[in-house]
Design a protein around this nucleic acid. Structure first.
Length: 401
RNA sequence: CGGACUGUAGUAUAACGGUAGUAUACGUGCUUUGGGAGCACGUGGCCUGGGUUCAACUCCCAGCAGUCCGACCA
């Protein structure tokens, strides 16, 4: 991609209506644009990052045998009424011009349960798991922290169906492993944390919490083992000992990056989602639901990986792999070669000063910066974003990067 | 939803009860090219409604919008 043709431009100044680091840098770099509180557009660079995140999520979801689908955002009142979730605080609800009432989907247990009744009828149909990556709408009383708490955001939600609780538990663990893999591939370190079931279940649920000063939750975690609990359910407090290994526990704000729930029969019951077991007996399907938010992950990544000059994308999610800066015309050839070889390259071919290109490159945060100038001769100067030193490499070496 | 603060050009900011200034971005021309280059010319602005006043961008009230704190948080 030639930067001279890119839809967006960078900005030298931070927006005055944003405080969060993730929002400031993403807006300055031209990744996103705020439309109203908690509502953002994802511009070409930001969209590429999102797609990379989504791809990783898809791979791990497919690997545990769940199937991708897509449900509507527009969900009629009757679905919510069945589960007594019409008129919840968090829903955007409205009447159509014809008087029909709808809620914008803020979660999809109702919809998936209604669909599943048409396809699940025997124990032979189970277990089953489906997921979608879709826009969710939640009337947050207070949208905040850039991409971390939005009113409209992208969510990957997964729903699973089982004959009994044991089978659900097996799958529940698989999803936890899959989420751990996703976060690892994204270079996001997160604590698997026990939390309350909210309105869904009396069992503990689990969250992946990223320890960060900007988090909204409070996590109590052990300094020696993997014990981690959301403070809302924590029986231990700072200064006490870990219940698992008796080491010191600490407290930290956390950002909830993902969560997993055992739903049990909470939705299969109102939607009459049943299967026939081996003995010919009708039973309620046991369900689980699992969520991870790509747009929030993008915000987390920027909170985790930035410095005074801008973003430092991990390679797995960077919008491009190489940022090629043209200080003289010879860079054109390098660009053509990289493009031909299928390398993801953003080529700064703009007629602006070298200094501006360096500054923008740091802001945008592409992992590798390649410079072609009089100084570099036939070679290319290569530098990792965030590194102090650069080195001169040949075009062949750059292609093999 | 309660509290605090803030709304001036695309963006970021300044001043002022009496013709709104700067930076940046943008356009044109010339000169520039290793850390946000220079000169010249040009385009572009006071959130909305009401009140006070001879006169309101400025003061007052309301609304709307945004940020932060709190409450809330599948």
């Amino acid at each position: 991609m030639r930067q001279s043709e890119l839809f967006t431009k960078t900005s030298k100044t931070s927006p005055k209506d944003e405080e969060a680091v993730n929002a400031k840098l993403l807006i300055r770099g031209g990744f996103i644009r705020k439309m109203s509180a908690g509502v953002y557009s994802y511009l070409p660079l930001g969209f590429r990052v999102l797609e990379k995140i989504n791809k990783i999520i898809r791979e791990e979801m497919n690997a545990i045998g769940s199937q991708e689908m897509l449900m509507p955002a527009l969900v009629a009142k009757e679905y919510w009424e069945k589960s007594h979730r019409w008129h919840t605080d968090i829903a955007y609800e409205f009447k159509s011009p014809f008087g029909e009432e709808f809620g914008l989907g803020w979660t999809h247990e109702e919809v998936i349960s209604a669909i599943a009744t048409g396809f699940i009828s025997s124990y032979k149909d189970l277990p089953l798991a489906v997921y979608q990556i879709q826009t969710k709408f939640r009337a947050e009383p207070r949208a905040k922290s850039g991409l971390l708490r939005c009113r409209e955001f992208l969510m990957k939600d997964l729903y699973s169906f089982h004959t009994d609780k044991e089978d659900l538990d097996r799958f529940y663990k698989k999803v936890i492993n899959a989420y751990a893999k996703i976060l690892k591939r994204l270079s996001i370190k997160a604590n698997l944390t026990e939390a309350s079931g909210g309105s869904f279940t009396k069992d503990f649920t689990h969250e992946f919490q990223v320890l960060s000063p900007v988090g909204e939750d409070t996590v109590i975690y052990c300094t020696a083992c993997d014990f981690s609990q959301n403070k809302e359910i924590a029986l231990v407090r700072r200064g006490y000992r870990c219940p698992k290994c008796d080491s010191e526990v600490k407290e930290s704000p956390g950002i909830e990056a993902a969560n997993v729930f055992r739903l049990g029969v909470r939705y299969s019951e109102p939607f009459d989602l049943k299967f026939t077991d081996k003995n010919g007996e009708k039973k309620l399907v046991v369900m689980g639901s699992y969520g991870i938010g790509p747009t929030r992950l993008m915000g987390i990544l920027v909170e985790l990986y930035n410095d005074a000059k801008g973003i430092q994308w991990p390679e797995a999610v960077a919008p491009y792999k190489i940022h090629l800066l043209a200080i003289n015309k010879k860079a054109d050839k390098v660009y053509e070669r990289l493009k031909k070889a299928g390398v993801e390259v953003l080529y700064d071919d703009r007629e602006v000063s070298a200094g501006e290109k360096f500054a923008d490159s740091d802001l945008i945060g592409i992992p590798w910066r390649a410079v072609v100038s009089e100084k570099t001769g036939e070679k290319i100067e290569l530098k990792k974003r965030g590194a102090v030193k650069s080195r001169l490499v040949s075009l062949d070496q750059l292609l093999k990067l």
